[in-house]
Write a protein that binds this DNA or RNA. Structure first.
Length: 562
RNA sequence: GGCCCCAUCGUCUAGUCCGGUCCAGGACGCCAGGUUCUCAUCCUGGAAACUGGGGUUCGAAUCCCCAUGGGGUCACCA
């Protein structure tokens, strides 16, 4: 028991899982795996106003989608559970536990009830700021009521918080990535342990739960570094173990600012301003709210409103949450690989001498370690993520790609999903093969595949393409037959080509070109325009095979009739 | 402002702990060629960095100090 490694991820359920949170969870998971330990998930829902069970559920689903499975914690399908009997995993359900600890602390004088009004504290804080001093709340011993008196007033129902009586001594935090970090005596003040609503503060909940749940290693973002002395002091006062800390560098966006949901609003606001849009372009936002949002850089729209607004402007919102990336067509292996490299690297060379940086979850679980976590913050480079994603998609078999793509379409584009399903598995696989090298995300696989998703009679042929490629001569110098002539001659060949499959069709096209003393480069354009309506498409062998014989002939027939 | 952290190509980084093998390697992006029926994919090549100043040392990207820059944090939010 004592040498069992226990890591934990403890999100507060106030929205979707942030990509930075995903990295923390991934590292916690990997560290536990590497050391044969347990990875625990705890829901820190002590902010009654902002927390929701729907968010908690969403975060669980985001983690599961990424393939980050927790050994202990809330149940989601076959993930989670409570083998060591440390539940409940929602802090809101642990109030009696916290209260018991608080009671003991008050009895021992290591904590005290504070009945002062919040407004008074604010005034003191403002005064300190005005005097250019740091505000620390640490009343003289004489100002603290005797425990019995505290109890009396608490029982009388007087509003109050409970504070730690912070020992005035220097604190040192040992961090696995930053080293020793020292804080002078007095840096830690009498911070709040229990709020007026009876819920624990983050600091108190974390320390008590980490102790009770046997957490041995705390991996978290560097934004928590200044919280750590508070936690260490509390642990010492309570006689708890101090876990191993590892504070990882922060992740920034390309502007060098912390990635946040707010930047999605900023991007939309900038687009609105740039386009000179004065009235809400979508019904879901009323005029007054739109104006207020446009004028106030701190205001945020609801997710749905923001997304429809962005869509109306043709704007791609920057992805921030795991759900955003999922919707944008990124896949878990690429996301996990990429975020693992933000602040960590395996330090292993490939046989050719280059750095090894493409790896999977299994590799992470075998190789992740604390010493190789970097100290400096990193920017989230979407273009590199995109390259990873494209490679992951490209490395899939046609069948794997088809399955992943189909799943994505079912969730985010049901009409296209239905069209894809209608092709059947063989033609679907050919489409997958055709589209794979032409997309970097599952979402942008739709564009090169659009020709296969539209009914023959609804295919629109671009005017310019028809005029030039179908009606005009096939040779650049203006000589030779027209594209239409060529298609008429090609039709019989397509009618009799053996199995209507990419390879045989490619061979048939080559043979046709040779027979007419033409190059494939001359034959291709008219056929491409006939089949897809545009001058850009996947290879023609695949395009033909995906459409099938009757559809292909029908499309040629239609373009000839224009 | 107080406290704390950080500092290698545009970006992510290797190298730093145990100074020499580094006129600094890789990846993404960028640029130029090539393959190709279009678009992509793919292949080859190229440009591109040790923040500045002081030390220590025969020798510093690597150790020390200062400066500068960047960041985090200062709640009855987590």
């Amino acid at each position: 028991m004592s040498d069992l490694v226990v890591t934990r991820f403890a999100p507060s359920p106030t929205g979707h899982l942030h990509i930075g949170g995903a990295r923390t969870a991934l590292f916690c998971w990997a560290y536990a795996r590497r050391h044969g330990g347990r990875f625990l998930l705890r829901i820190e829902d002590t902010d009654q106003a902002r927390s929701s069970e729907a968010s908690a559920r969403g975060i669980l689903e985001d983690l599961a989608w990424l393939g980050i499975r927790w050994d202990e914690g809330p149940l989601l399908g076959d993930i989670g559970g409570d083998p060591r009997r440390v539940a409940p995993f929602h802090q809101s359900q642990r109030l009696p536990i916290y209260n018991r600890v608080i009671d003991e602390m008050i009895d021992r004088g290591t904590a005290y009830a504070d009945f002062s009004a919040a407004a008074d504290l604010d005034a003191m804080r403002k005064a300190a700021t005005a005097a250019k001093q740091t505000f620390r709340y640490r009343p003289d011993a004489a100002q603290i009521l005797p425990p019995a008196e505290q109890r009396r007033r608490m029982h009388a129902g007087e509003p109050h918080v409970v504070r730690l009586r912070s020992p005035e001594a220097p604190v040192s935090v040992t961090d696995e990535v930053l080293g020793e970090v020292a804080f002078a005596a007095g840096e830690v003040d009498d911070f709040v342990l229990r709020k007026a609503d009876g819920f624990p503060t983050y600091h108190f909940g974390v320390v008590v739960d980490d102790e009770l749940m046997g957490v041995t290693h705390v991996l978290r973002g560097q934004e928590h570094l200044m919280n750590t002395p508070k936690h260490v002091v509390l642990q010492q006062v309570l006689g708890y173990r101090t876990p191993v800390y590892a504070h990882m560098p922060l992740i920034f966006n390309d502007q060098g600012a912390k990635m946040s949901k707010r930047e999605r609003d900023q991007a939309a606001r900038a687009a609105v301003k740039q386009k000179g849009i004065k009235t809400p372009p979508v019904d879901s936002i009323d005029a007054a709210a739109f104006d207020a949002w446009a004028a106030d850089t701190k205001r945020q729209l609801e997710t749905g409103q923001l997304e429809s607004l962005a869509e109306s402007m043709g704007l791609a919102l920057p992805e921030v949450s795991v759900e955003d990336f999922r919707k944008a067509g990124y896949v878990p292996p690429a996301i996990n690989n990429f975020i693992a490299l933000l602040g960590w690297n395996p330090g292993i060379k490939n046989p050719d001498g280059s750095d090894l940086e493409r790896f999977d979850m299994e590799f992470l679980a075998r190789n992740f370690d604390l010493p190789r976590i970097g100290k400096s913050n990193s920017r989230f480079d979407r273009r590199k993520l995109l390259a990873f994603n494209a490679d992951v998609l490209g490395a899939m078999t046609d069948e794997q790609f088809l399955a992943a793509w189909s799943q994505w379409l079912q969730r985010f584009d049901p009409a296209a999903a239905a069209a894809l399903a209608a092709l059947g598995s063989q033609r679907g696989a050919w489409l997958a093969r055709a589209v794979k090298p032409r997309c970097k995300t599952l979402r942008d696989a739709i564009r090169p595949a659009a020709f296969a998703f539209v009914a023959d009679d609804h295919l629109v042929h671009e005017d310019a393409a028809v005029k030039q490629v179908i009606a005009g001569p096939v040779n650049k110098d203006g000589s030779g037959p027209t594209g239409a002539d060529l298609l008429r001659r090609l039709t019989p060949a397509l009618e009799r080509t053996g199995p209507f499959e990419p390879e045989t069709l490619q061979a048939a096209l080559d043979a046709f070109a040779a027979e007419h003393q033409l190059t494939i480069g001359v034959v291709a354009p008219p056929l491409r325009v006939a089949l897809t309506g545009t001058r850009v498409s996947p290879g023609l062998g695949e395009t033909l095979a995906v459409l099938g014989r009757s559809s292909a002939l029908r499309r040629i027939e239609r373009v000839l009739a224009l």
